[in-house]
């Protein structure tokens, strides 16, 4: 039997470290989640149900789901395309493209929102053209979608780039030399290799798309029942002293976070089993 590496801290030292780690976890992560749930159900299940089925809350939920339904597929396509180009090919401007993919991570979401105001706002670069054609981008649905697209852009690509770089392009080259077309190579060779990484990226992208606050807050205009997403609706309710309703809606977002965590764990486990 293999011997365990010698423990250096001693029993009490290890115990103290574990206790500290658990305390920090509990204080920073578990406790806030419990507070959200406690406040959400402070008025009973019926009040919680009434809060999340209120007309404005429902429209916020639909808006959030709608925006996510547009943003996640688009960013999946963009992410796979970007990762494919960066990982499998060597070309001029490749590192520039890599930096551009990371840009939304580096830029504060509020600044991201302001970029769209500067571009599409009334006094923005395209503002005059848009208003001449009676098109609305900021303070309307297109602006919210654009802001969310921008902020969640890197998630899929960032997940795939290291994976695809590691896998190299030998398998694809083999497929091509055996006479497969480009699409066949992608569908039968590349995609199965990256599916767990891709799924993981999509889950993270989805979670952020539903939870994004900063950038969306800048371009939303905060019109109740029209351009208020779920995170914005939580803020509106909080400012209206409707604390229970605010926490009820926040509990929906927390629920989403927990579902995301569970899905992520399953994907990771399956991915690890496939790899083994």
């Amino acid at each position: 039997m293999k011997e365990h590496p010698k423990q250096t801290g001693g029993f009490w030292g290890n115990l103290a470290l574990c206790a500290a780690a658990l305390a920090i976890m509990g204080l920073l992560i578990v406790l806030p989640l419990l507070v959200v749930l406690k406040e959400a159900f402070a008025g009973g299940v019926r009040l919680w149900l009434a809060s999340v089925t209120d007309q404005d809350a429902l429209s916020a939920i639909w808006l959030t789901l709608g925006v996510t339904a547009v943003v996640v597929p688009l960013n999946t396509v963009f992410g796979v395309a970007a990762a494919w180009a960066i990982a499998k090919f060597r070309f001029k401007g490749r590192s520039l493209l890599l930096s551009l993919v990371d840009l939304p991570f580096a830029v504060s979401p509020v600044v991201a929102g302001l970029i769209f105001i500067l571009l599409f706002g009334r006094h923005g670069w395209l503002g005059t053209w848009l208003s001449e054609h009676h098109l609305r981008v900021v303070f309307a649905l297109p602006g919210i979608i654009l802001a969310t697209l921008f902020v969640t852009f890197p998630f899929v690509a960032r997940e795939l780039i290291p994976l695809m770089t590691e896998q190299g392009s030998e398998e694809e080259q083999a497929a091509l030399s055996l006479g497969a077309t480009g699409w066949q190579t992608f569908a039968k060779v590349t995609l199965p290799n990256i599916k767990w990484g891709l799924l993981y990226g999509i889950i993270l992208c989805n979670a952020r798309a539903m939870g994004e606050f900063g950038a969306v807050s800048v371009v939303s205009g905060h019109i109740r029942g029209e351009t208020s997403t779920l995170p914005l609706h939580v803020e509106v309710l909080y400012n209206e002293y409707s604390f229970t309703a605010a926490f009820a809606c926040a509990s929906l977002l927390s629920g989403l976070a927990i579902v995301t965590l569970v899905l992520k764990t399953i994907v990771e486990l399956k991915g690890a089993r496939d790899a083994a």
Binding site: F120, G121, R122, H123, S131, R136, F139, H222, R224, V236
Partner: peptide, 18 residues
């Protein structure tokens, strides 16, 4: 439809295209 916020901030949003 209603939109609420700090008065100066709301004026800014209308200037920008709300």
């Amino acid at each position: 439809k209603q939109s609420h916020g700090g008065s100066g901030k709301q004026a800014r949003a209308v200037i920008d295209g709300l």
